[in-house]
Amino acid sequence: MHLWGVPASAVPRAVARMALDRRPVRRAPGARFAKLLGTGDGRTFTVRDADPRHWGLLVAWDSAADAGAFERSRTVRAWGAMAEESLRVAMRPLASRGTWAGRTPFGEPRGGRHEGPVAAVTRARLVARRALTFWRAVPPVSADLHRSPGLRLAVGVGEAPLGLQGTFSLWDSGRALSGFAYGRPAHLEAVRRTAEVGWYAEELFARFAVLDADGTFGGREPLR
């Protein structure tokens, strides 16, 4: 995961790069799956959350060598030239359930224990007629997420301002992430209502071991 923060003067260039970089990223050697992402604070998952000064790129690679080669690509250099900060997180999938755009981008990882920081990626495509009830349900869960012990960073991500919702989060440990997912009443209620109401036409949840994290987001190093 790459997250870039740009100055206000560079926002138009960042928007342009979101269109220009789609084909080069998808055609990068070893790129299995790639999504350029807008970001937000994830408080409501509506356009009110949008953060035009932070942008993301999530790529699943065939190998670490392919990921390393991409760091020298024109795409990364272009973002680096206009960014005032950046965060790069290298990860290995531990578990993945569901699909994204009809695909299983992180394969079928075997799981296993990991001692150290973990990351989570969630993504959902909303059923249009259920969107209003979803947006009403989000604020209590989001507020609880940001209070959760062990959370280091939580960013709303999406491919479009509405309807394609997601989060990227960093945690001290797998235990901390599980504590939120399975131990917080607001989140458990949202899970129950997901099955009951049918908010999502498609959904994905993936957990990762964090191998390396370099840089800052919002002016701070999230894992330090």
Rank of each mutant, 00 (worst) to 15 (best):
A64C: 04
L37C: 03
V121C: 12
T39K: 02
G98Y: 09
A195V: 06
R26T: 08
S142N: 07
H54F: 06
A83Y: 09
T122W: 02
T216Y: 03
W199Y: 15
L223C: 02
A195L: 13
H187P: 12
S73I: 10
R53V: 06
P140R: 05
G5E: 15
R88I: 00
R27L: 14
R113M: 11
V157I: 15
A209H: 09
F134S: 04
L132K: 08
R184K: 09
M91N: 04
R152C: 01
V25S: 09
D214E: 15
P24S: 10
M18A: 10
F217P: 00
E85P: 04
T104Q: 11
Y200N: 05
G174I: 10
V15N: 08
P149V: 10
T122Y: 01
G5Q: 15
L20T: 09
T167G: 09
L3D: 01
A64Y: 06
F70Y: 13
G102P: 10
K35P: 01
S173W: 01
G56F: 06
W61S: 06
P139M: 05
A128F: 13
L94T: 04
G174N: 07
E189I: 06
L37H: 07
G166W: 04
T133P: 05
V6L: 09
R152L: 00
V76T: 02
Y200V: 00
R97Y: 11
A69M: 04
L145D: 03
E189C: 05
A14R: 01
G5C: 07
V89W: 01
G111T: 04
R192P: 06
T104F: 03
E203I: 11
A190M: 09
W135E: 08
Y182I: 07
S173K: 06
A95D: 04
A67E: 11
A65F: 11
A8H: 07
P52D: 03
A206K: 00
G179T: 05
R125W: 02
P222R: 01
F168A: 03
Q165H: 07
V157L: 13
A154P: 02
A16F: 04
A120N: 13
P149T: 04
V121P: 00
F208T: 02
W199D: 00
L162P: 03
V47F: 05
R184W: 07
A78G: 10
L20G: 08
A31S: 12
R53I: 00
G98L: 13
A8Q: 10
V210T: 10
A19V: 12
R175N: 09
A124P: 01
F168R: 03
R110N: 05
W100V: 01
R97E: 11
E85R: 14
A69C: 05
G116T: 05
T216Q: 13
A78Y: 00
G107D: 07
W4K: 10
H146K: 08
L20K: 05
S148L: 09
R103P: 01
D212S: 15
A60L: 03
A176V: 04
H114W: 15
P12S: 10
V59I: 15
G219Y: 12
V197Y: 13
T46I: 03
L132W: 15
A137Y: 08
L3K: 01
L164A: 14
R92I: 04
G42P: 11
G174M: 07
G112R: 13
D51H: 09
T75E: 06
S142I: 02
P12V: 10
R22H: 05
